[in-house]
Design a protein around this nucleic acid. Structure first.
Lengths: 128, 128
DNA sequence: GGGTTCCTTTACGTTTACGTAAAAGGAAGA
DNA sequence: TCTTCCTTTTACGTAAACGTAAAGGAACCC
């Protein structure tokens, strides 16, 4: 229909089970509307699922993902809260920078490994 | 002593519990020597623990980390094995590139969020 | 020789993130 | 109408990665 998705649609599009999607809803990460009993997902729900899966790829727990999402949703005030939010953001950024560094290290190492393997293959071809 | 570490040393240095280190050993990721009953860690064990923790930061499971470590240790031949190793390496690299991209996205978003929070703080200061 | 600290093994408990099975309802197609 | 497919809720099961508690041994300090 008109930019509306069933649970099966999203399941297929993102390669996760319907169980998973329902679980995310149960954890408060998604809140689709209903048509009778059936869940109906709007584009914004789809975007949110995308964000959740990105968070997962980055090793965030669902709880953390929930908090990050709430960070977007609540443009709320109160200085204390805001300051602690900023702290969390900075901590997270530091972690991510470390992760990025890790990734670059590992990419280098993977290059080395692949070359080593290729060399070994060459050697076998020459001898075998 | 002379480049030897107790389990407590490593625990303190890397900020993990001794339970965790023993668990890694139980899973075949570490194999320290012994002095009587006590575990003795050589520099190479320390390096390996470092690798394990980096792997964890990147979201690898202990099983995957085990395989990656074995990739280093076994310069073994047989073409079939090598080809499948190369496949795995390439698949992993693709995943890591996606992760790196994810991280850059999130870093941008964190910047935006932090600025938003800072602005809100300014506003409160002006009003409060 | 009692206290403290560090180490050991054994083993049950816990959290996260789903998997999987059971039982049932609605809608589309032959 | 029968079958098939998609959906629902409920609920027990599970793998990973440790936490935590119990019970004990060895070393050091005063």
């Amino acid at each position: 229909m008109d930019d509306l998705y069933s649970i099966g649609d999203l399941s297929r599009e993102f390669g996760v089970t319907t169980r998973t999607i329902r679980f995310y809803e149960d954890q408060g990460l998604l809140s689709p509307t209903r048509n009778g009993q059936s869940r109906i997902y709007q584009p914004r729900d789809r975007v949110r699922l995308k964000l959740i899966l990105r968070g997962k790829r980055l090793g965030f727990s669902l709880k953390e993902i929930n908090k990050l999402i709430q960070l977007y949703d609540t443009p709320e005030g109160e200085a204390g809260q805001l300051r602690s939010f900023i702290e969390k953001i900075r901590a997270r950024r530091t972690e991510l920078l470390v992760q990025k560094d890790d990734i670059e290290h590992v990419l280098d190492e993977l290059d080395t490994l692949e070359r080593r393997c290729a060399d070994l293959l060459e050697a076998e071809r020459g001898a075998g």
